[in-house]
Simulated scan of single mutants.
Amino acid sequence: METKILVVEDDNTLLEMLEYNLNRQGYQVVTAKDGRSALTFARQEKPDLIVLDVMLPGIDGFEVCRILRKEFSFPILMLTARTEEVDKIVGLEMGADDYLTKPFSMRELMARVKALLRRVDLIREALNSQTNGSSATDLEEPIPLLTFGNLEIDQNRREVRLNEKPLRLKPKEFDLILFLARHQGIALSRDLILERVWGWTYDGNSRTVDVHVRWLREKIEEDPSNARRILTVRGIGYRFDG
């Protein structure tokens, strides 16, 4: 089945260029020029991937991403002319899978698109393999609940609870604490965390990890300035002690 990509861009020249190059790669392309149309087409077409500009008339790309991430799991590649790291963090926290800053080469964009689609294919293959090789009883068995005293990480619900009360975490905050918790007691470098949680195609730096760790500490530590769960390992990165 032909891979379908929704491109949302209000610059006609860039939109036509993206559509032309994606078509040449064999992708079926659907286009939109504003946020409301993007939501409509995403719901109607159910694309395999969205290339989404940040600066859109009406509803901006950040808000479109936030809304769609609640409804769909397809990868979202955001485009922006902004270079500030905080904008990249906002986009990723809204649920974007990757971020590309204008101006960019078509070769780089195609590489990002293929990498995101390849990731989706690998997940599907893993799920199909699990389904074909497991009994109904196996499939119904829930993913284990990770418990660290009064802190619980529920992988099925993508929820973290402290003293049995759910915490309001952003998507990447949950991904980060889950990754750290799965490697309890191991010192993890910032670069490794960045690669595993944000993906190798993310072009931000390790400061992103520090910011998210600070946000997590404010939510799960009794005294964020004297952390006991997520410890800083000088010269390396962080270690989750639970």
Rank of each mutant, 00 (worst) to 15 (best):
L139S: 05
L139E: 07
E140K: 07
E140Q: 13
E141L: 05
E141C: 05
I143K: 10
I143N: 07
I143G: 03
I143P: 06
P144Y: 08
P144T: 07
P144E: 07
L146Y: 03
L146M: 15
T147M: 09
F148S: 02
F148I: 05
F148M: 05
F148W: 09
G149R: 03
G149H: 05
L151W: 02
E152D: 13
E152H: 09
I153M: 05
D154Y: 00
D154T: 00
Q155T: 05
Q155S: 04
Q155R: 12
Q155M: 11
N156P: 06
N156C: 09
R157Y: 13
R157M: 10
R157T: 04
R157Q: 12
R158D: 03
R158Y: 06
R158A: 08
E159F: 07
E159H: 08
E159Y: 06
E159A: 10
V160F: 04
V160G: 02
R161W: 04
N163P: 01
N163F: 13
N163C: 01
E164Y: 10
E164H: 12
E164S: 15
E164M: 07
E164W: 03
K165P: 04
K165D: 13
K165I: 15
K165E: 14
P166D: 13
L167C: 09
R168Y: 07
R168N: 13
R168M: 11
L169T: 11
L169S: 09
L169M: 09
K170Y: 08
P171M: 12
P171V: 11
K172V: 12
K172G: 02
K172N: 08
K172Q: 14
E173N: 06
E173D: 09
E173H: 09
F174R: 02
F174G: 02
F174N: 03
F174L: 02
D175Q: 10
D175V: 00
L176T: 02
L176D: 00
L176R: 01
I177S: 00
I177Y: 07
I177R: 03
L178M: 12
L178F: 09
L178S: 15
L180P: 01
A181P: 00
A181G: 03
A181E: 02
A181Q: 04
R182C: 01
R182E: 09
H183P: 08
H183Q: 15
Q184K: 15
Q184G: 07
I186Y: 11
I186G: 03
A187E: 11
A187Q: 06
L188H: 05
L188Y: 03
S189P: 14
R190L: 07
R190A: 11
R190T: 13
R190G: 15
D191I: 08
D191Q: 07
D191P: 00
D191C: 00
L192E: 14
L192H: 14
I193A: 09
I193D: 05
L194S: 13
L194G: 06
L194K: 15
E195T: 13
E195I: 11
R196T: 03
R196Q: 14
V197M: 04
V197T: 05
V197D: 00
W198F: 15
W198H: 09
W198V: 06
G199I: 09
W200C: 10
W200E: 11
